[in-house]
Amino acid sequence: MTKLLVSLLSLTLLLTGCGQKTADGGNEGGGKQITVALMPKSKGNAYFIACRKGAEEAAKELNVKLLWEGPTESDPAKQNEIVETWITRGVDVIAVAVENREGISSALRKARAKGIKVVTWDSDAATDARDLFVNQATPEGIGTALMEEAAKAMGGQGEYAIITASLTAANMNEWQKHIKIANDTRFPDAKQVALRPCDDMKDKAFSEATALVNAHPNLKLILAICSPAVPGAAEAVKQAGKQNSVKVVGLGLPNENKRYVKEGITPSVILWNTMDLGYLAVQTATALARGEVKAGDTKIQAGRLGEMEIQGDNVLLGKPFVFTADNIDQFDF
């Protein structure tokens, strides 16, 4: 029993030690400062790291407290849990990059009912579950842009294959739908011959792409719609010695793809400026919390981005950006 007490005490000390550190961090943000809670679709994803950089820049300029938290596992319920925890905590505005539209809308409605402003960014929830949507590109815009670039790279005809993160990723399924629509209506000579998941891992994307180029001798293009898959597929094409017959196009970060863009394997990488996306999300959320903008306005002052257009209840960031060999060196993220 004595020994038990000793171990208890040491455990207590251990926990208190951890707790003290958190106490300092937690109490800094007292006072009247606005708290913006920003959630990515998932943590540990390079795409959202760039968003976070922009978000922190905006938070500094506006002197707001920024909370950054998101799911670390593949469990789709995790976003709900965090939103509901923020409701209990009491924040001024919640901004969510929605992973799962149907699942999260009930939690966001609850937040609005408690007087918390809600913004969605990157991807939208049900329209009555949020005040504004910071729209970097609609699924239709992304799907169409991907298919356009793909068609350009394969000369408008031939076989192509898609590599996605997982078969259950809601946003990617939405993009695929619009890729298919664009394919059927505008590029009828292009034919999708395979769809493979890569678990959002570069190594797996590499193996899948290798099998694809060898199994489909007429394959002209791999369309990689999750960011680790673009360099993974390009490396596979390179190692299979198919640089001249197979190209890779996809959604990815410039830094990860520079090498392949310059080598000509990846003629173009599509992305909006993710730092600006995070920046604009925090600008919009803060303006909403301060009452500087409301539904029905047609423009918003967004710091260094200047005046941005609001269409309906969508704040528009602009079209997705196409990185090519000519401009990719100007970006570092």
């Binding site: 593949s74 469990d75 789709p76 319920a77 799962n100 149907e102 699942g103 809308s105 009930s106 259950t168």
Partner: peptide, 14 residues
């Protein structure tokens, strides 16, 4: 009932 949806990835890692 809690999340209002039934999808194949429900409960991953539980």
């Amino acid at each position: 009932a809690h999340y209002g949806q039934a999808k194949a990835d429900a409960g991953s890692g539980y």
